[in-house]
């Protein structure tokens, strides 16, 4: 994998500071109307032999427009595999079924910039598709524009040396646990996405004014790196955009998960489309360049991942509590 020189961010700041001379605003032509499709498929391997569930969401929006643009409502979004059939995603009234409204308790959906975003979803208890399948995407907008894409679903993977009960386990307060997994075929990277809840009270006891819920990402990208320590190795990406309080929380979490805090940790083996869209392309001063996997009359991402979900709580041992996830690590 190529180096991602964080240095260039610092270099950009340096260049801008040295330039010290802004050019005046110039009015430019209206932007092109480009449809953006963000389609995400998750195959979740359920615990206790309950098979694989299928979850798909498609957020259709478009480049910022000044004028009223034709709605994307009424589009068709179909995911298919030649031998296993297809799933047509249903249009939802509420865009929040595709978008988390306030992931860190402070951001919001910029409705004024994307007024026409439309959400499509499908939730199927027993997945019609399997890990390793190559899925196709076809989106047809009401005005006839067509977007297509393709994704190779990563193989199934197992978490190893995890002691759980129906996907639940516990940590002793202020300790960390090392998640370990076996490799999934065709996975480009492993994401450990955690939603931490119940932070406010334990953090207040440490004089930190914390939001109650916090999302933190852990990332394992190297083929030889199949472990990730929870919670100390989570939050590297959030750290730079965090508020001072959130930063203090992330620092505290490096010591381990505070008592009373619960976490839902999704370990996902992500495909190439997912990784490319998230990490971006070459430098552009006007915004992030995203590497698409949807083409045709628009752009976007068609990503797939296989997932295991573990619910972790930091608590002392008590009868009826789920088992200890595993040995604590410093």
């Amino acid at each position: 994998m190529n180096p991602r020189p964080i240095a260039r961010r610092a270099g950009a700041l340096g260049a801008a500071a040295l330039a010290g001379c802004a050019l005046l605003d110039v009015r430019i032509a209206d932007p092109e109307d480009v449809i953006i499709a963000e389609v995400q498929v998750l195959l979740t391997h359920e615990w206790n032999g309950n098979g694989t569930s299928f979850e798909a969401g498609a957020l259709l929006h478009r480049t910022f427009q000044r004028e009223e643009t034709p709605t994307l409502r009424g589009s068709t979004v179909v995911i298919s595999e030649p031998t296993k059939g297809s799933v047509r995603l249903e249009e939802r009234r509420d865009v929040e079924e595709c978008v988390i409204p306030s992931p860190q308790g402070r951001d919001s959906i910029p409705g004024e910039l994307a007024p026409n975003a439309v959400c499509y979803r499908a939730n199927v208890a027993l997945s019609p598709f399997d890990p390793g399948d190559r899925l196709s995407l076809e989106i047809t907008a009401p005005d006839g524009r067509v977007l297509v894409g393709s994704s190779l679903v990563p193989g199934a993977f197992d978490l190893v040396e995890l002691d759980e009960e129906d996907g639940r386990c516990r940590l002793d307060p202020d300790t960390n646990y090392r998640f370990q997994w076996r490799f999934a075929e065709n996975a480009w990277s492993y994401l450990a996405d955690a939603r931490l809840e119940g932070l406010r009270l334990p953090m207040a006891q440490r004089d930190i004014d914390s939001p109650d819920t916090l999302y933190l990402l852990g990332f394992a990208i190297d083929a030889e790196d199949s472990t990730l320590v929870f919670s100390s190795e989570f939050g590297i990406f959030e750290f730079f955009a965090a508020t001072d309080e959130e930063r203090d929380v992330i620092r505290e979490l490096r010591r381990g998960l505070p008592g009373g805090v619960g976490a839902t940790v999704a370990m996902a083996a992500a495909d190439r489309n997912w990784v490319n869209w998230e990490r971006g392309g070459n430098f552009n001063p006007s915004g992030e360049v995203r590497i698409p996997s949807v083409f045709g009359d628009g752009t976007g991402v068609f990503s797939t991942a296989t997932r295991r979900v573990v619910r972790v709580r930091a608590t002392e041992f008590r009868p009826g509590a789920p088992p200890l996830c595993g040995p604590a690590v410093s």
Partner: peptide, 9 residues
Amino acid sequence: QRAVEGRVY
């Protein structure tokens, strides 16, 4: 994309 929610933010 947020894998834990199956949604984007």
